[in-house]
Computed example of a mutant assay.
Amino acid sequence: MDTPHDTYDLITTPLTPALLRGALDVERTAHGLLPHRLPARARAQNTDGQLAMAESQPAGVRLALRTRATAVELDTLPTKRVYGGLPRPDGTYDLLVDGTLAAQGTVAGGSTLTVDLARGTFEHAEGQPGTVRFTGLPAVDKDVEIWLPHNETTELVALRTDAPVEPARASGRPVWLHHGSSISHGSDAASPTATWPALAASLGGADLVNMGFGGGALLDPFTARGMRDTPADLVSVKIGINVVNGDLMRMRAFGPAVHGFLDTVREGHPAVPLLVVSPILCPIHEDTPGPCAPDPASLGGGQIRFIATGDPAETAYGKLTLRTLRDELARIVAQRAADDPHLHYLDGRELYGEADFAELPLPDALHPDAAAHRRIGERFAGRVFGPGGAFAP
């Protein structure tokens, strides 16, 4: 749906935070607006380049408009990631009309962020904005959402339409605030509305605020405070894979960190349903601690794969594996639930377990592919939003 804009008259609408959903903060840059998924205070306390990159990638962030427009143009400045000299595909923009996917597009060019996984370095090169265009929309009053690429930092530069726009009306759906790792962020999902949390929110009738951060679900206090201060009707935290593959703490520190994180979230959400989800199956880390590292044999090839480099014998000294971590999470939630009737637990292997791995293996040994994202999202919706689930009406 890409048509030269000189075939119709366009109105430029100023981009403001009122047009956005799913962002915790919006920064005004030299180019326009940059959505963030961590508030400014949290970003000021973070020194990790990986988390800084992840929180600026707008997973779950969308423009939400009410309009009769048949044509929409959005100028953006994307930042494309390059790993090991291999550029990734351009990020996808999903256009929804009255909640139904109507079109998809991309923006070519933009800035680049070259990531050296072996050295842990980042190199940024400035680029130029581009445009995604959608035409042929029905000439009636409708809700239009443009979901931004979940894996591509996106500065919003200009919005043009052939009819006036206003912010979309409140949906009346419950707001679901979710925190997790790269899997919740949407790594390897087909598009921004096809990440498992976006799918689950759509099936469950909820408005998603996605605080899934690739490599960044590490029980950081500033993330907990960000969740505490974000209005929500439903809250979930998916804890574990980054704690294991980052190898940042042992069992002695893990339990108190979980308690502290949940205590902080509860300060802002004392009585809403709060769901703790343990990791999905990941065979490389089920019984082998971190750290996780790129498999040297895969660097420079078409598919980077990951390996666990820890020693299983060290679990006796408190090193974490997914198996030991799940046991501790279940214990902590059971303990707290005695005084918190709205606290719930879900074993992540109910969303993706051994049978799923046999059918839909993790391509890089760490992240689900697009088909597995759909399965996880559908299962989460059924188990959590469905009858008897933690988020059931």
Results as ranks from 00 to 15, higher is better:
residue 222 F to I: 03
residue 224 A to E: 01
residue 224 A to L: 01
residue 226 G to Q: 09
residue 226 G to W: 10
residue 227 M to F: 06
residue 227 M to H: 04
residue 227 M to N: 03
residue 228 R to Y: 10
residue 228 R to K: 13
residue 229 D to V: 02
residue 229 D to A: 09
residue 229 D to K: 02
residue 229 D to F: 04
residue 230 T to A: 08
residue 230 T to V: 04
residue 230 T to R: 09
residue 230 T to S: 11
residue 230 T to N: 05
residue 231 P to R: 12
residue 231 P to M: 12
residue 231 P to Q: 10
residue 231 P to Y: 10
residue 232 A to T: 10
residue 233 D to L: 08
residue 233 D to V: 09
residue 233 D to I: 08
residue 234 L to S: 06
residue 236 S to K: 10
residue 236 S to T: 12
residue 236 S to P: 09
residue 237 V to I: 13
residue 237 V to E: 05
residue 238 K to A: 13
residue 238 K to R: 05
residue 238 K to P: 00
residue 239 I to P: 05
residue 239 I to M: 07
residue 239 I to K: 09
residue 240 G to T: 04
residue 240 G to K: 08
residue 241 I to E: 01
residue 241 I to N: 03
residue 242 N to E: 11
residue 243 V to D: 03
residue 244 V to F: 10
residue 245 N to A: 09
residue 247 D to V: 00
residue 248 L to I: 15
residue 249 M to E: 09
residue 249 M to S: 11
residue 250 R to Y: 08
residue 250 R to V: 11
residue 250 R to N: 14
residue 250 R to M: 11
residue 250 R to S: 08
residue 251 M to I: 09
residue 251 M to Y: 06
residue 252 R to K: 15
residue 252 R to C: 00
residue 252 R to L: 09
residue 253 A to R: 14
residue 254 F to Y: 15
residue 254 F to E: 01
residue 255 G to K: 11
residue 255 G to P: 00
residue 255 G to L: 03
residue 255 G to R: 15
residue 256 P to I: 11
residue 257 A to V: 11
residue 257 A to S: 15
residue 258 V to K: 04
residue 258 V to I: 10
residue 258 V to D: 05
residue 259 H to Y: 12
residue 259 H to G: 00
residue 260 G to M: 05
residue 260 G to Q: 14
residue 261 F to I: 12
residue 261 F to P: 03
residue 261 F to E: 02
residue 261 F to K: 04
residue 262 L to P: 02
residue 262 L to K: 04
residue 262 L to R: 06
residue 263 D to Q: 11
residue 263 D to H: 12
residue 264 T to D: 05
residue 264 T to C: 01
residue 264 T to G: 00
residue 264 T to S: 02
residue 265 V to L: 05
residue 265 V to S: 07
residue 265 V to M: 03
residue 266 R to W: 06
residue 266 R to Y: 01
residue 267 E to D: 14
residue 267 E to Y: 00
residue 267 E to A: 12
residue 268 G to P: 03
residue 268 G to Q: 08
residue 270 P to Y: 09
residue 270 P to F: 06
residue 270 P to C: 10
residue 270 P to Q: 06
residue 271 A to G: 08
residue 272 V to P: 01
residue 272 V to T: 15
residue 273 P to W: 01
residue 274 L to R: 07
residue 274 L to M: 14
residue 274 L to H: 11
residue 275 L to N: 13
residue 277 V to R: 08
residue 278 S to G: 14
residue 278 S to T: 14
residue 278 S to C: 07
residue 279 P to Y: 10
residue 279 P to A: 07
residue 280 I to C: 14
residue 280 I to E: 02
residue 281 L to H: 15
residue 281 L to I: 07
residue 281 L to D: 02
residue 281 L to W: 13
residue 282 C to I: 15
residue 282 C to V: 15
residue 282 C to H: 04
residue 283 P to E: 10
residue 283 P to L: 13
residue 283 P to A: 13
residue 283 P to V: 09
residue 283 P to K: 14
residue 284 I to G: 00
residue 284 I to A: 12
residue 284 I to S: 05
residue 286 E to F: 01
residue 287 D to A: 07
residue 288 T to P: 05
residue 288 T to K: 09
residue 289 P to C: 13
residue 289 P to H: 06
residue 289 P to R: 05
residue 290 G to Q: 03
residue 290 G to Y: 02
residue 290 G to M: 04
residue 290 G to R: 03
residue 291 P to L: 03
residue 291 P to M: 06
residue 291 P to Q: 07
residue 291 P to A: 01
residue 291 P to S: 06
